[in-house]
Design a protein around this nucleic acid. Sequence first.
DNA 1: ACCTGAACACCGTTCAAGT
DNA 2: ACCTGAACACCGTTCAAGT
Lengths: 190, 190
Amino acid sequence: MARNRTTVDREEKRAEILDAATDLFLTNGYEATSMTALAKAAGIATNTIYWYFDDKDALFIEVAERTFGESLAEYGAQVLPTLVDRLLWLVTVFERLNGLTATVHARARVSPSISTWHDDFHATADRWLIHQARQHLAAGANHTPPPTDEQLAAIPRIWSYAIEGMVVHQLSDRERRQVCETLVRQLDAL
Amino acid sequence: MARNRTTVDREEKRAEILDAATDLFLTNGYEATSMTALAKAAGIATNTIYWYFDDKDALFIEVAERTFGESLAEYGAQVLPTLVDRLLWLVTVFERLNGLTATVHARARVSPSISTWHDDFHATADRWLIHQARQHLAAGANHTPPPTDEQLAAIPRIWSYAIEGMVVHQLSDRERRQVCETLVRQLDAL
DNA sequence: ACCTGAACACCGTTCAAGT
DNA sequence: ACCTGAACACCGTTCAAGT
């Protein structure tokens, strides 16, 4: 029916704009990408973007969500035996987003939409990290006594801040491994 | 002599502009502060700023340097007996810079001047943090064997990323203390 | 419903002209 | 040497007008 046909077309057009935005945001950064340049890459007038998206921030959120989604899908297809490997993999996921991590933190202070998205993102990330920590500790089983929930509470924060910091400060592979190994060694020693 | 008189006047005028910039950057943020608003606050024409400073980034660097300098001066006048207290104090120093930490990371990707300043800043911070860690370990003296340099190498990075993360993500006092206590407990356990 | 040309209210920065 | 009015080349966003 016509209703359905239209909906499909709309999604296709949205996807085209998102493709261009993803490409430009990841290669040139958010601030360096103007709506005009984005429209030109998508082959439409600048203001047409506003018929499909609320504003530039909304575009950014969808780009970030899409990129993270793709990365998480790849995770299932991989074998990352150790916790150190899994943390290092997370760093590469964030690195793919290039300067977007710094952009999120800067824009979260002025944009309510990006701020709430950022909060949700960290809530999800924290759950994943605490799960990884528990799994790692259970596999080791060489500690007496096991750390309490209270003691583990700060772990996902320290880890996510470390991951963001490594990406933002562009550490080398060697330095990253050193940091991740220290993080895991410190968890074991807790 | 006239030479000297002129130099003094110039420094005074620079200081006036810096006062206005510090006030506006810290309360409204870097991006939200336009050169026009800044000029109005300083009581001069917008383009006059460019006779005293290269560009907006140069202004930012001087504001950041000045604010950190003042905070470090206060450090000497305080008594912070434990390492946890010292880390928590560092968080409040960064917090005073409001959203400027996120701005530094975002601008460092596009501005060479801010990038090199940022690198220098972290080099200094790393030396201070590693000194604090060593001092703390020496005071405790209840570990066998003491951690090697290799093992301590990642500590200043983990700490500075955690401090930046706590400020950027606006943790509560309680959460901050929890993170800092965990960081120190993990150092002791190393 | 979809798309656009033109305009709006900005932005950081430059430059010729003043004193 | 110091300061400015006016302009430059942008920016994200809006809106009336088209189809």
